[in-house]
Structure formats: structure tokens, C-alpha cells
């Protein structure tokens, strides 16, 4: 299944945040969206998954979701969005309870994703007992349990400290190797994008337009600081002036 973004633009109350986005999300790829603050990356992610209706254009589907897909467009959230009154197990099973599965099938599915994300021994814990990193693992487990066609990750590691972020990035890489799923990954962190993505879409500052799409040609096992240095420079140069002027704009906007 492929997602085709056809001339999508979006404005909130007259303020344009996206303009003329033309994009295809290919089957099985990891597509990163990066850009300065306010460039509309989260808005685009919301539009991709049907949580937001664009004011212009549309997102079209080419082909069908793979067999066994339960929730085609599934999100992982920056603030984890766990139900505080449910255990880890309960939060994961939330994704499955309204689908036609009997208790046995559901239990097996929950067990599977819990072990995939290393949460099996935490199944009865409440979110308040977990660290930020563990909470996001629950978010990922929940998303995987829903058997998505496209995984939409909205700055999933922004709320975590650098060390936890590195640990989770390793988890992502491991999961991708085990279970390939089409993913759109929004981040403002260059290094995350370079580690995980097949292609990186660079958005300009508000209103967000596609500045450039950069393919990450280095194979995953070979990705390291040295091998990615050239790409990193190129990306940084692209982003830097967008980021700098976005930064100043925000300050000016608030002063007005």
C-alpha cells in the first residue's frame, strides 16, 4: 500500500502552516520528516493518518493494506498518551478490545508485543510506576499490537533524555529488522533521522513546503558517524537557515 499526498495545504484560523505538499510514502519505507519548529510536520502527520482534515488537497491510498491489518494508520505519541488507570497490559490491549478477536487471541497478541519490547515482566505495572523510556515502549507495543499498515511516530523520543533516547533508538532498529512496517517519523533531531530513515523530507519554515527530499543510501548496519558525516553536513546546511529564521520569527511574532 502506498500513501500519496496530493497538493495538501493546511491553515489554522487563517494561519497557513502547510503549503503544496506533494509526496509519496512508499511501501515498507521509513520516511523521516524534519524541519524547524512550527513548520507543520506534526500537522502533516495528523493529516496522513486521518486525524486532521487538510484545508486543501488530499491524501490518497494506492493499493490495499496487508492482510491481517487491524488499525491501518496507527500513531506513537510524543507524550506517550497512556491511560494512567490501566496497567501496561491494559494499555496495550486497549488497541485490540474493539476488534473481533476472542480473549485467547488477544492475550497471545498482547504477550507477543510485550516480549518484543521487553515489557513482559512489567505487564502489571501502572504508568506512574514507569520511567519515560518504559512508557514510550508501552506506546510502541500498543501500536504494534494494532498491526498497523503505516506507523506514524510524532517526535516519539523528544520527551526523553539523551541516554534513554539512544537506548530506544537501538530498540527501534531491532524492531525494524524483525518486523518491517511502513513508518513516517517526525523529528527535529537530525541524528535520529539519519539513523532510522530511508528517505528524509526536509520541510521549510512556516508555511511548511518541501525543501528537499534526501535519500539515505548507507545501509543500516554501516550507518555510523563517519559514514553519515557528508549527509549530515548537507542536511544541516539545509536546515540551518530555515531554523535560524524560524527562530527569529517566533520571537518577533510573540513580541507583536
Amino acid at each position: 500500500m502506498e500513501l500519496v499526498v496530493d497538493g495538501v495545504g493546511h491553515a489554522y484560523d487563517g494561519l497557513a502552516v502547510l503549503d503544496g505538499i506533494e509526496l509519496a510514502v512508499r511501501d515498507g519505507e521509513v520516511l523521516a520528516l524534519i524541519g524547524p519548529s512550527g513548520c507543520g510536520k506534526s500537522t502533516l502527520l495528523g493529516i496522513l493518518g486521518g486525524m486532521l482534515q487538510p484545508t486543501r488537497g488530499a491524501v490518497r491510498l494506492k493499493g490495499d493494506p496487508p492482510a491481517g491489518t487491524l488499525n491501518p494508520f496507527t500513531y506513537v505519541f510524543q507524550d506517550f498518551a497512556l491511560l494512567p488507570w490501566r496497567t501496561v497490559e491494559g494499555n496495550v490491549s486497549l488497541a485490540l478490545e474493539h476488534h473481533v478477536l476472542d480473549a485467547g487471541e488477544r492475550g497471545a497478541a498482547v504477550d507477543e508485543v510485550l516480549s518484543l519490547t521487553g515489557l513482559s515482566e512489567f505487564r502489571s505495572a501502572l504508568p506512574k510506576q514507569l520511567s519515560g523510556g518504559m512508557r514510550q515502549r508501552v506506546g510502541i507495543a500498543r501500536a504494534l499490537a494494532a498491526r498497523p499498515a503505516v506507523l506514524l511516530l510524532d517526535e516519539p523520543l523528544s520527551a526523553l533524555d539523551a541516554q534513554t533516547r539512544d537506548l530506544l533508538l537501538e530498540d527501534f532498529e531491532r524492531l525494524w529488522a524483525l518486523r518491517r512496517v511502513t513508518a513516517v517519523y517526525v523529528t527535529h533531531n537530525l541524528d535520529e533521522a539519519l539513523r532510522l530513515a530511508d528517505r528524509i523530507v526536509v520541510l521549510s519554515r512556516r508555511p511548511g513546503r518541501i525543501r528537499e527530499i534526501v535519500a539515505v543510501d548507507v545501509s543500516r548496519p554501516q550507518r555510523g558517524v563517519a559514514t553519515l558525516a557528508g549527509l549530515r553536513d548537507r542536511l544541516w546546511r539545509l536546515i540551518r537557515d530555515e531554523a535560524a529564521s524560524a527562530d527569529r520569527e517566533i520571537v518577533a511574532h510573540e513580541a507583536a
Binding site: G49, N71, F77, L83, A95, H98
Partner: peptide, 13 residues
């Protein structure tokens, strides 16, 4: 609202 949007994003009726 974020929890409600999350539930909607998982297709809950």
C-alpha cells in the same frame, strides 16, 4: 484531549 485523540487514532468506537 490527547487521550481521547489517541483512542480515536486506534479506531475505538
Amino acid at each position: 484531549r490527547s487521550l481521547i485523540r489517541m483512542a480515536q487514532s486506534f479506531g475505538l468506537p
